[in-house]
Design a protein around this nucleic acid. Structure first.
Lengths: 172, 172
DNA sequence: CGAAAATACTTAACATGTTAAGTGAATACG
DNA sequence: CGTATTCACTTAACATGTTAAGTATTTTCG
């Protein structure tokens, strides 16, 4: 019990503990996580009504914009790891929302494309999805949203360069 | 095959498909996801060396800053759902990194606190964690980082109000 | 050519995210 | 006082995140 703070922000507690670290709830990873969760919370109910998870929806969207893609390419576009993508594609194929055929020139690769049914499903989800996005844009402000995305992109970029350096270090 | 774009940014494809949606890779959820992943990619190796996952680390950090907390309170602080937290606490307890005891006044609640071992582990991880954070701050710019976090907080806030409205609607 | 290395996935195993249902303890209230 | 409801968690079930290992195909190169 003691002085159990009821304030969730856990403000600037003066009696610091053994490890004097940055206020936990204000760390960048937490800020990003919470912001993303706040956004996704808006979309999930609509997706759920259509029997889609967030990731499945990402894949369908990606496929709709590129006709056909190899699995690796799709993983990069939908920002999913290979194993996750493998599982999801298996399920989407079972539901006849996508189609696959192995490439003729290279039997290792398989070309994935969205099926007619998949297109139909997308068409049924897209309107509400767009409406939600529009509401978010309006609430937050279109200009501010653009600024935010700009900063997020820069953050990603400046950290990607760190990764590149590490990869070189690994090779050496 | 056809005109399979090699460009991962999937630029401003002129020949739009059936569903004319916002460029997928530039959606807000994707921007947030990629930014967060770029950040976490910096921390994960260090955590892994110490045998901790990102979420376990979040819990230990949260506990270190508040001495003892109820599970529900901890879930809010570490931004984890109840079921996830339940599992993780079970594991952390088995590793003797945390301690639990049921509250005397209310047998339903259990008070969780970090153990001596947990504090030791934190102390061993904190330095490298702080160093990584410092490098990110330096690379991105302290002022810009503060701006970004400010915007993320505003985004979260303006969407939280939407949720509140929905909850009222649900009750009605 | 043919064995070694690289490539494009897929499987496996374990941890977490997400929703629904279950359990035991405290409250509300008739 | 007793029962229905609420509350604080926990379990269950299924989907994904994450790393490592496996499989089949292709390339590389001696």
């Amino acid at each position: 019990m003691a002085k159990k703070s009821t304030d969730p922000t856990n403000g600037s507690a003066p009696g610091a503990r053994q490890v004097p670290m940055r206020d936990f709830s204000r760390s960048l990873p937490m800020s990003l996580l919470r912001a993303r969760e706040a956004v996704m919370r808006q979309f999930r109910p609509s997706l759920r009504e259509h029997g889609l998870t967030e990731q499945q929806w990402r894949i369908l969207r990606a496929l709709a914009s590129i006709d056909a893609a190899e699995v690796t390419e799709l993983a990069r576009t939908a920002f999913l790891l290979g194993p996750s993508l493998s599982r999801i594609l298996r399920d989407l194929e079972a539901r006849n929302l996508i189609e696959r055929k192995t490439a003729k020139t290279d039997q290792r690769r398989s070309m994935v494309s969205i099926s007619r049914e998949g297109v139909k499903l997308m068409a049924s989800v897209a309107p509400s999805s767009e409406a939600i996005y529009a509401e978010i844009t309006q609430r937050f402000g279109a200009r501010k949203l653009a600024e935010l995305q700009e900063m997020l992109g820069e953050l990603e970029l400046c950290l990607a360069s760190v990764d590149a350096r590490d990869e070189i270090t690994d090779d050496a």
